[in-house]
Write a protein that binds this DNA or RNA. Structure first.
Length: 892
RNA sequence: AGAUCCGUAGCUCAGUUGGUUAGAGUGCUUCCUUGACAUGGAAGAGGUCACCGGUUCGAGUCCGGUCGGGUCUACCA
């Protein structure tokens, strides 16, 4: 068969993926083997995979493929989440382009459009996962809005509510007064702006009940019955319902029980004392406006203050403001500032650097607004989740980096707001009657039953369901359970077999949003961790270190990259530059490296095929011991053991690096050259067969990382019925370190001799005569053939003493004399030797210094001291060799 | 503002409990093209391990500080 000049990935990748699918290799059913289960972090259904996903999916595929080849029943669940905020935004945008306003649609109509959208675009990510070669079980695709999933989410909500773990409470939301809608935090852009801090004087009035006399305050902050507050938003003063100072602030202690008058409207408000106020900020006195600030709202709750909402939905002043009703908040601000000036209420104005939130949708300044939301109590759920990680039941990788973060967050956890003012998602199963009474139930019928206990005339049409939907994380926190229907149908065969899953691979940025909450749900509902290991990948950045984002447009298109370099090269490129847990700077150059690696493998295959054609039939030429084979066999086993060890530590990037080096350097650059027959010569059949076997094992080792080319090569090496994809990895043989050492020495000698040739400008084609001076001739006899081939020596012989008129090379304790017909440049040789001599001398000095230090000899471990002594002896030998060489040179 | 991680070759990064002369990839320099591969081969140069101090016989590694950078969380009148 004729093999193409270079490896052509486009001819293999689709072919093999289709083959694997047809064979059902990725489908998993419970059986007697141990399970290795991975659930994909579900990407956003309307999105496309970005480089962060690519890294994640590649890591998962490597782990899953390795497990599949190691006797496990590997099961990798693909899927996507409904991403309520992002998806709804996209659907709204799409409708707008069609000239349809969401506000003019019913909920049902809108959801119909949304599902159509999902059907149309939801497949993109699946296509990308496939193109990347991911070995997911396509029969188990799960979507967070699937019927069973929807029901599971509702069931969990009702359950937690009944347990008292879900409650309704107040929360400040981001309100867009132009779009008249609530915004998520993600939809708010913060910008640094120059604002003004206004110092306003509020007149004091005696306490309503009893006066405390007319004693004036000692502080300059108060003048003749005024208290001064600092505010950025003077237009909200009409919503003030108290002034708050710190009880420890001596400037204000005398104000206990007094009232203040809100300027312009002269409403009387109490002065309250709470440690929340920072005496050092502004004047140390805070105006409390519960309707427009969450902290103020909480103070209001604590002190039972009235809530006066002075703004309408559209950002104009409401009737409650009493003045400037109907005017825009910023227009009103200017007018009010003027009036305050006129009436002498403004003590001073100060420039003030602040951050304001702007709506991504409409661009206007976001208005904080108090609203009723649903919350999950976190403390009770957090404790077992913290314990699972703290006790080491769940291991985080890399641990040192994220353990502290995880513990800190769970130790200081805040309640989780789970309601969203959207339609796309699981609608909150809370039902209201006309009087506003509320029950929580899985269905309207259930709700009706609950209401009927109180009122039997009630009909189902009288019920109104809560408008809001649940946070997407409130569905995805059930992911490791519900992909096996473990919440909607507890105790089924799948959940029993696959749960807990093996490893979760995800980005460190969602450690709290998702990872911690999955652990909470798992511990709460299964009383068991959802996964044993968590592997955090770093963030993918661009070459300049910037975060990849849609707005910067610096995220490359995955399918284009695969078209250009092939999936194997993309996987290689992203893995090779991805140290465990650290961010990686994505550079297409690493994909090029991957493509070149493919080509290298391909050409090694071509070389073997060339040899195959020249193999003598049925005849073994040479059955004797072959150093190259023994060495490479050991080297292979050595690396296989290292790789296994790296897998355990999730150091996949390092594993790939040493496999890469094993194939390129040890196999291609050394081994193949060592066994290569002379030009037009046939190859020893035993060597050939052994080489095919090595190649096969290399492909096996690399397969999890680069599945396509390895499968292709596996089949091209020889005809077979099985597939590499499901081949079971053979056990690792024992190591003979002596042979490995000999191999390293051989490489060193070859490089040193080539270096000497280079420096003396001996052309590669020019043959030399090599004389070796060594105490161990036996060792060199074995590798003589390799050595002569590798340094182009026409003769190799051993010598007891220095050979004159040659280039001398010293490696370890042995000396090599290169005899050549070419005229040698003694100057260059001498310079090199002197440089080396100086280096060795310096080294020897440092060792001597150490050994002369009594405290070192006394304190250091015996093996360390022994090592230093060996260094000392070796250095002395090397120096002697160099000096001899210099002597020899003089004879030139 | 809090929490946390990082600073090693031109660039991107490894460097296990302190113990050979600090490694790799890439880039750079020199040489090499009829023979698997120029998407290649052979070889080489390149580092005061951010800075200051401490512990130790010994520090890239441990401790304290300074400077610089990242990430997450919170944003305060």
């Amino acid at each position: 068969m004729e093999l193409s000049k270079n490896y052509i990935f486009s001819e293999t990748e689709n072919k093999w993926y289709q083959h694997w699918i047809n064979k059902g290799y990725f489908n998993s059913e419970p059986d007697g083997r141990p399970a290795f289960t991975v659930v994909i972090p579900p990407p956003n259904v309307t999105g496309v995979l970005h480089m962060g996903h690519t890294l994640n999916e590649t890591v998962q595929d490597i782990l899953v493929r390795k497990a599949r080849m190691s006797g496990f029943n590997a099961c990798w669940i693909p899927g996507s989440d409904h991403a309520s905020i992002a998806t709804e935004a996209k659907v709204v945008q799409m409708l707008k382009e069609k000239g349809i306003e969401k506000n003019n649609l019913t909920r049902e109509e809108f959801l119909k459009y949304a599902f159509e959208w999902k059907e149309k675009y939801g497949g993109i990510i699946y296509n990308q996962i496939e193109k990347l070669g991911c070995s997911v079980d396509w029969k188990r695709v799960t979507f967070t809005m699937d019927d069973h999933y929807y029901k599971a989410v509702i069931k969990v909500f009702v359950d937690l509510y009944n347990k008292g773990l879900i409650y309704r409470g107040a929360r400040m939301i981001n309100w867009d007064p132009a779009a008249k809608t609530a915004l998520s935090d993600e939809e708010v852009e913060y910008r640094n702006v120059q604002g003004k801090l206004y110092y306003l004087k509020y007149s004091l009035t005696p306490a309503l009940s009893e006066g405390e006399g007319e004693s004036l305050p000692p502080s300059g902050e108060l003048e003749g019955g005024f208290i001064t507050i600092a505010t950025q938003r003077p237009e909200t003063i009409m919503g003030d319902t108290a002034i708050c100072v710190n009880p420890n602030d001596e400037r204000y202690t005398h104000l206990k029980g007094k009232q203040a008058l809100v300027p312009l409207i002269n409403r009387s408000i109490p002065i309250i004392f709470d440690e929340y106020v920072d005496p050092a900020f502004g004047t140390g006195a805070l105006k409390v406006t519960p309707a427009h600030d969450i902290n103020d709202y909480n103070l209001g709750l604590k002190y039972n203050l009235e809530v006066v909402d002075t703004l309408n939905e559209d950002g104009t002043l409401s009737a409650a403001a009493q003045i400037h009703v109907g005017e825009d908040r910023f227009v009103a601000r200017n007018k009010i500032v003027n009036e305050l000036h006129e009436k002498g209420h403004i003590l001073k104005e100060e420039e003030y650097a602040t951050r304001l939130g702007y709506s991504q949708r409409s661009g206007v300044v976001v208005e904080p607004r108090i609203s009723t939301q649903w919350f999950v109590k976190m403390k009770e759920l957090a404790e077992p989740a913290l314990k699972a990680v703290a006790d080491g039941d769940i291991k985080i990788h890399p641990g040192d980096k994220f353990l502290a973060t995880y513990k800190y967050w769970l130790g200081n956890v805040k309640d989780w707001c789970i309601s969203r003012q959207l339609w796309w998602g699981q609608q909150i199963p809370a039902w209201y009657d006309e009087q506003g009474n509320m029950v929580v139930a899985e269905t309207a019928e259930e709700a009706l039953k609950k209401f009927k206990i109180q009122n039997s005339t009630f009909k189902i049409e009288d019920l109104r369901q809560d408008e809001d939907v649940l946070d997407t994380w409130f569905s995805s926190w059930l992911w490791p359970m519900e992909v096996f229907k473990g919440s909607s149908n507890p105790g089924n065969a799948d959940i029993n077999y696959y749960y807990p899953t093996s490893v979760l691979v995800t980005g460190q940025d969602i450690i709290f949003f998702w990872v911690a909450r999955m652990i909470m749900a798992g511990m709460h509902y299964k009383n068991e961790k959802p996964f044993s290991d968590v592997y955090f990948t770093g963030m993918v950045r661009d070459k300049q270190g910037r975060k990849m984002s849609k707005s910067l447009g610096n995220s490359p298109d995955l399918l284009e990259l695969i078209d250009k370099y092939g999936a194997d090269a993309v996987r290689f490129g992203i893995m090779i530059s991805s140290p465990a847990g650290n961010d990686l700077l994505f550079d297409e150059a690493s994909l090029e490296q991957g493509r070149n690696f493919n080509n290298k493998i391909w050409n090694a295959l071509k070389l073997l095929k060339l040899w195959e054609g020249k193999k003598p039939k049925g005849l073994t030429l040479n059955a004797e011991r072959n150093f190259a084979i023994e060495w490479f066999g050991n080297r292979l086993n050595e690396v296989r053991a290292e790789v296994d060890n790296l897998y355990i530590q999730f150091k996949l990037s390092e594993a790939l690096k040493i496999i890469y080096s094993l194939i390129w350097d040890d196999f291609c650059s050394w081994y193949l050259e060592w066994v290569k027959p002379g030009f037009e010569q046939p190859i020893d059949e035993k060597v050939y067969n052994k080489t095919v076997e090595f190649f096969e094992q290399l492909m096996e080792l690399l397969h999890p990382f680069m599945p396509f080319i390895t499968e292709e090569v596996y089949h091209l090496l020889q005809h077979r019925e099985d597939d590499l994809c499901v081949k079971q990895i053979s056990s690792i043989g024992t190591l003979q370190s002596k042979i490995l050492d000999e191999g390293e020495l051989l490489k060193k000698v070859i490089s040193a001799l080539r270096d000497a040739r280079n420096k003396n400008q001996l052309k590669p084609k020019e043959a030399i005569k090599l004389h070796i001076q060594t105490a161990d001739t036996e060792a060199y006899t074995e590798i003589e053939n390799i050595l002569s081939k590798q340094v182009n020596a026409e003769t190799v012989n051993f010598t007891a003493e220095a050979v004159t008129n040659t280039i001398v090379v010293a490696v370890e304790k042995d000396k090599f004399f290169i005899e050549t017909t070419q005229q040698l440049d003694a100057g260059v040789l001498k310079e090199e030797l002197l440089k080396d001599l100086e280096h060795q001398q310096r080294f020897l000095d440092s060792v001597v210094k150490k050994l002369n230090n009594e405290r070192f000899v006394f304190n250091a471990k015996p093996e360390v001291v022994a090592l230093e002594k060996k260094k000392h002896a070796d250095a002395e030998v090397r120096i002697k060799v160099i000096e001899e060489s210099l002597q020899n040179l003089k004879k030139l």
